[in-house]
């Protein structure tokens, strides 16, 4: 009996967005008289940080500070239509809609500023710090907050913008499967190291190290969080989780967290990553999206690492200790002239 170590790799792509039914999102932006901007949506934040990254995208396009942007979501009476948060689509679609809305609002802002500064609209620029200035004329500047107030009380104007983004619906050719079901491709390559206890069949994941390529990172800390949390979930899928432990037999279904197995704080391996940026052509500032894909490559990387450690090729998820032990037994039988060790027909 021994503890055997092995490493495995997996390389994946992930198609983000889903437009087989059309995939639109809308956004509205307006300035309050105190100079903050409110982005109104009906998109949902599942914990990935949508409100934060959308505020960043809006601030970037408006040319104001991120603290001056508030995200009002989600209410179908105030927020314009959005398909929903799924398919790694939200940052990509909503981000694109917000850029369009922010451009329109920025134009309105600069038009009022041009009147106030008695300058040409085309000579104005924002500094990202809350000021609008005349290019090449230091001293000729005005605060965004002042313009927001003047727009209402002096000029009787709104500073607002509308934005929509949609990838048109793509039909599938039922004979060939020709289709255009997504917007862009993100990528990952994961190297997992495991230790397999040949006496108990327990697999311990030592580390999950990955390279990701996700287009532009709007917020690297949030991207990192997705990668770390997703690696944990991938490990959990690989080794622990199922609602139907004896599938297809429907019995013995867990009903709570004490019966539905997931790795806890103690089982978390070393998780680390590097992130490459190859901006996409169609995402906001080159975003591709990273919401879903982070649980994917760790699964086969772990399963391949188990093979590297033990010589047992496993073709089932989750890889329970029982499966490992049966695989080891079969391998021994095979070595002494018995049946093939694989659970599938090689």
């Amino acid at each position: 009996m021994a503890k055997l170590r092995g490493t495995g790799i997996a390389a994946v792509n992930y198609p983000t967005g889903m437009n087989l039914g059309g995939d639109p999102s809308q956004a509205l932006i307006h300035a309050t008289t105190s100079g903050s901007f409110v982005v109104t949506l009906s998109a949902t934040d599942l914990g990935q940080g949508l409100r934060t990254v959308i505020a960043q995208i809006a601030a970037e396009t408006l040319g104001v500070g991120v603290d001056d942007v508030f995200i009002d979501t989600a209410d179908t009476d105030t927020g314009p239509h959005d398909m929903g948060t799924f398919a790694s689509r939200a940052t990509h679609r909503v981000g694109n809609a917000v850029i369009a809305a922010a451009k329109e609002a920025r134009e309105a802002l600069l038009e009022v500023a041009a009147e106030e500064l008695e300058a040409s609209r085309d000579d104005l620029e924002t500094d990202g710090l809350g000021n609008i200035r005349v290019r090449g004329a230091p001293g000729r500047s005005v605060k965004v907050t002042d313009i927001a107030s003047l727009a209402q009380f002096t000029y009787g104007r709104t500073i607002s913008g509308r934005g929509a983004w949609m990838k048109p619906r793509s039909a599938v050719d039922p004979e060939t499967g020709a289709m255009d079901p997504d917007s862009t491709e993100a990528h990952a390559c994961t190297v997992a190291e495991v230790e397999v206890d040949t006496e108990t069949g327990v697999v311990t994941v030592i580390s999950i190290k990955s390279a990701y390529e996700v287009g532009r990172q709007v917020n690297p800390a949030l991207v990192h969080g997705q990668i770390v949390g997703g690696a944990w979930m991938g490990m959990s899928h690989a080794l622990y989780e199922t609602t139907t432990p004896y599938y297809p037999d429907p019995g013995h279904r867990p009903k709570d967290f004490s019966e539905y197995l997931m790795p806890g704080a103690h089982e978390t391996p070393e998780i680390d990553c590097v992130v490459l940026e190859y901006p996409s052509s169609n995402g906001p500032y080159g975003v591709k999206g990273i919401g879903e894909m982070t649980a994917n490559s760790p699964i086969p990387a772990i399963v391949n690492a188990i093979y590297h450690a033990t010589g047992v090729r496993i073709d089932e998820l989750p890889v329970t200790p029982e499966l490992v032990l049966r695989g080891l037994e079969a391998k021994e039988r095979h070595a002494s002239g018995g049946v093939t060790p694989s659970t599938a027909g090689d």
């Binding site: 770390v228 949390g229 944990w232 967290f257 997931m262 806890g264 704080a265 103690h266 978390t268 998780i271």
Partner: peptide, 14 residues
């Protein structure tokens, strides 16, 4: 932390 479930973060940041 062992008695607390987090489904998102992977525990390490906590």
């Amino acid at each position: 932390l062992a008695g607390n479930v987090c489904r998102c973060t992977g525990y390490a940041p906590i």
